[in-house]
Simulated assay, not measured.
Amino acid sequence: MLIVLVLLSALLFAIVTISTNQRSAARNGITGVLLVLLVGSIALLFTNDNQHWGMKTVTTTTEKPLTSASNMSGANLLLYQALGNGKEKIFIYKTNTQQKKVATTQADIKTTSKVTRSNTKNAKLVTKTQRYVYRNGFYRALFAGVDNNHAFKSRQHEFKVGNNWVVLSTTQAKALQKQAKTSQAKLKAQLTAAVKAKMVAALKQNPQMTTEQQQALQKQYTAAAQKQAQQQVLAQLQKESLK
């Protein structure tokens, strides 16, 4: 409606001004009314565009499950890339185990992200999106043609994860992966030595142990040693996660 008023008032104002040479009270009154309509309509359009006059904010909430963004020693991992001074972050995540490519949060000033921890077993991403919509049909008709209904306002991401989740920067994750590769041979040697020592002690205690029993016991000791090593890695990841 306002766009039509702008066009009509501008056109009529030009016609009245150009076609009528003599000044009169009627001419002045008509041009005055047309000028008020023109300026008023433009002002309302400007206010709607800049201040969202005639509109209200509606919030839409969505929830998605979270899975580990990377396979690192069995840890539930959430990654982020720091921006600028480090306060703003782009989070890197997955919503299902079959997802081949990771997803990322948006890198814009209207999007904020945070991580909250609890005893929850099911991690999830809660996203709240705010948009501007017209208050009622009158404003929708008034600003018909402006095409700004459902205009984006802001977005908040909240990663709700358990206390066992590890939140690392991509820099930290790369450093830890590099460290793991360099220490892998050493760790393997330590595990082998630990299992061997336990097997020697077990054989001394029970020399009559059969081959099958020895294999089963060695498998048990190996699994326990691997679990202990994994717990040590997870503890290191948790320590890095607090930094």
Rank of each mutant, 00 (worst) to 15 (best):
S73T: 12
V161Y: 01
M55P: 01
L78C: 10
I92W: 02
H52P: 00
L38E: 08
K243R: 14
Q81I: 06
D108E: 05
F138T: 11
G145Y: 10
T111A: 04
S19E: 11
K94F: 06
V133N: 00
T222F: 00
K198R: 15
G137Y: 09
T31Y: 00
T116K: 10
T61K: 13
A189P: 08
T95D: 03
H150T: 03
K100D: 10
L34W: 06
V16Y: 00
Y93S: 02
A197C: 01
Q214I: 04
L79T: 03
Q98A: 15
A26L: 12
Q190V: 12
Q22I: 07
K114M: 07
T47D: 10
L77N: 06
A185F: 04
T210K: 12
M55K: 15
F46E: 02
Y93C: 02
V167W: 01
V133C: 00
K227Q: 15
I30R: 09
T97A: 15
V102D: 10
Q156N: 15
V133S: 03
K219R: 07
T59V: 14
Q231E: 13
T61R: 12
N48S: 08
A141M: 13
Q238D: 04
K94N: 04
S241E: 01
Q231H: 10
I90R: 10
A144Y: 13
V4I: 14
T170G: 02
K114S: 12
V133H: 00
L2G: 01
Q130P: 01
M199R: 07
K198D: 04
L12I: 07
R140P: 00
N122Q: 03
A225P: 13
L66P: 06
N21K: 15
V6A: 03
E240Y: 12
G74E: 08
L125K: 04
A229T: 14
S19N: 11
P65Q: 11
G32S: 07
N71C: 02
K153E: 03
Q230P: 06
S9A: 12
A194I: 08
L66C: 07
K110L: 09
L37M: 12
S183I: 10
Q130S: 08
Q156P: 07
M1P: 06
K243W: 02
S68V: 09
R117V: 01
S113G: 09
L79I: 07
V146N: 03
S241P: 04
T116N: 05
L234K: 15
L8I: 14
I42Y: 02
A180Y: 10
M199A: 09
N96S: 09
N122E: 03
E158I: 14
T222W: 00
N119K: 13
A25C: 00
R117T: 02
L168H: 05
V233H: 04
L35N: 11
K219I: 04
S118K: 07
A197D: 03
A175Q: 14
S113K: 06
D108P: 02
L168W: 09
M199T: 05
A229K: 13
N96G: 04
A197S: 03
F46V: 13
L38A: 08
G137N: 15
D49Q: 14
L203K: 15
E88D: 14
I18N: 07
A193N: 12
T210Y: 05
T192G: 03
K101W: 01
T20K: 08
T31H: 00
Q236M: 14
G137D: 14
Q230G: 12
T20I: 11
S154C: 04
L38I: 05
T20Q: 11
R140T: 12
I18A: 09
N76A: 11
